[in-house]
Design a protein around this nucleic acid. Structure first.
Lengths: 212, 212, 212, 212
DNA sequence: GATGAATGAGGATTCATTCAT
DNA sequence: AATGAATGAATCCTCATTCAT
């Protein structure tokens, strides 16, 4: 690699925006390759900086990664939270499928980060995230139990159902692209997204009645 | 780190099948951390060797990884193949759910490798694997189309269904452990496996009728 | 080998021109042993650095080598250029012999580098060097053709003459030391240099008349 | 690099010829790249063997190199010896120019090896070679001194003359190819060799009269 | 005589990180 | 807030060499 030269004249591109630029760059790279396979130099370059400058904003690589993770996961958790907060109304007009699909379509990095992190053991989700997640998980289970649509699923099966839906939502955005490379077709095309959303909705509704 | 000391000069071909030992070690590590985050030194140590010795058996890290991938994916493909080969009989007594769950329970590394590889873009599946997979994919679609249980799914939806089932099978083994670390519970316990298998079977059957 | 200890953390740009120190060190070592037989660790140590620090100044070993080559060959080309630029005056008082000998006596690395590089096929002379050399070669031939001293050499022989003189100039500095080791005598002693210069002058003049 | 596979069925190609094949292979590679930049694996492969087999014929890399050097240099020394042995007759019909050119044209590796070795300091010429060379050197000087063609060269200049001629003979074969890459033209073509031989003869004869 | 397997030493290079500027 | 320069640790990989077969 050639000697790195100063990243263009704009030494101070937008003042305080730097942290955001770094987070954006890091989100893209971490979500692409995971924590270990991403180098700080890449992140820095993508952010228009040099590696040591990152230390002005984050104490180390791990902290940057965790910040990325938190920032990325937050909106996903908010979608879930909103769903749960809607109470019974949620079942009558469950927008969660459309919301989640829209969110992930806009920021597929979320799904990829989550998968990388989960594959790696989830060691890097900070306390906030973890407890938030736990609370949502609990709330989700509760809600599911009281749902009029829960079909014939037994209580013990509901956690599996929850996990399965989460896997399907995120899997489309994290795994389908890798498979698309083999089979052709762009999972992010307008049409593909529309079809997948519809598919997920059918599944969502069908599943609640599944074991009839 | 302490200076590594030789694992006894070991000039005699030890457990007779060094290559197997290396593949085992590599499978464990690659499936844990992926290609880039696994070092050959770790692999070598896990196989009871020093890193340079690996080069007596594989030309480079990539080749080792691909060998691992092929060896791991093969049995999974065989399960699918067997299912497809069973023809119509397969629908009457579909053992694929039990078979796949049993296989992945025995070798969860398969699921993790597949996820790591897919997240990374699938660049390392060799030609054999790729064409095999493509053929199974085609066969799977055909079979699904003619299935008496396919419910009201439209033809265009079948690929999504296929992908969803694959995601769920593997996701349990690759992602659930990472989540379990957060919520407790061992996804590999006898009971958990039994429950998940039953759950997948319900889903499998329910899903075919899903959109009613 | 003993563990290398840091040459004092040296965070302050030492002798102010690290790049120069590296180039000097590299010139010495590359000229001694050639590209492949010189390790970056040696270069770094000779420059008072650790090997990775070299990458702050040159993208890789090859680039360092080419930089050394260019810096070394430049003055030699300038001597030739000056000779050619002198026009007809050059023949009346040809200082090129003295100039070239003085230059190579001061920096014998030039001759050694040139020989190593030429033996290796000249693949590492960059475009600048190459075109410069080509132009000097052309100019040299032209000049020779019009020289009143060119004796009875035929036009087709002039390139050979040119090459022969170049070989003799550089050969003394690159090869004689290796032979001296066998036979004794220091080719770089004041006296030896004086004698060789006189010898080259005689040859230079005699040769123009050679085939009478 | 791919795992090395056994070099074709002919496990025992020609019985005792193995050593010769190894020497041939090694001569080619050492003359091309020098001692350090040539690996035993390359040599072995070029000889149709695997590296460890070389140790059945030579104690180590250095010994192989020295054997190559001796075998290569011997015929060159013999040409010189023959010239010197001819006594006064040699001056009347000096075939040494044609002989040396013919030899080096047939085996340019000789010239390249000599240059590599001399650049490297001549540390690897064994005792035999060294003393032989020393004796030839002495003999050459004596012969030159008594030569009727020595022109006006002073006694002290004769060693320089000797060295210059040696440089020119070998330089054409070791250096011209590297330069030819830059300027075009094949120094080994029939015609080029004929012309260079004629050129060397003119030089040889002219030089003796040079300082007139 | 030939080779597969093994390894210590060392090769170039990358990385996260530090520090003076 | 940003960076050039520096470096220990670790990366993949090559090399000469050994030894049991």
């Amino acid at each position: 690699m050639a000697i790195e030269t100063a990243p263009s004249p704009q030494r101070t591109p937008q003042g305080e925006r730097t942290v955001e630029r770094v987070l954006d760059a890091a989100e893209g790279l971490f979500s692409q390759s995971g924590l270990e396979a991403t180098s700080l130099r890449e992140v820095a370059r993508a952010a228009g900086l040099r590696a040591p400058s990152l230390y002005n904003h984050f104490p180390d690589k791990e902290a940057l990664y965790e910040a990325v993770l938190e920032r990325a996961l937050r909106p996903m958790l908010e979608v879930i939270e909103a769903f749960l907060a809607a109470g019974d109304a949620a079942y009558r007009e469950p927008r969660i499928v459309e919301d989640m699909m829209a969110l992930l379509a806009r920021r597929p990095a979320i799904a990829r980060l989550l998968h990388h992190e989960t594959l790696a053991g989830g060691e890097h989700m900070n306390a906030v995230l973890r407890s938030w997640l736990a609370s949502l998980y609990g709330g989700g289970l509760e809600t599911l139990k009281r749902s009029p649509f829960r079909g014939a699923w037994k209580d013990e099966e509901l956690p599996r159902l929850l996990f399965a839906m989460a896997t399907l939502f995120t899997g489309y955005f994290s795994l389908a692209p890798g498979v698309a490379a083999a089979f052709g077709g762009d999972p992010f095309s307008e049409q593909a997204l529309r079809e997948q959303t519809q598919f997920m909705r059918k599944l969502w509704e069908g599943v609640w009645r599944a074991p009839a």
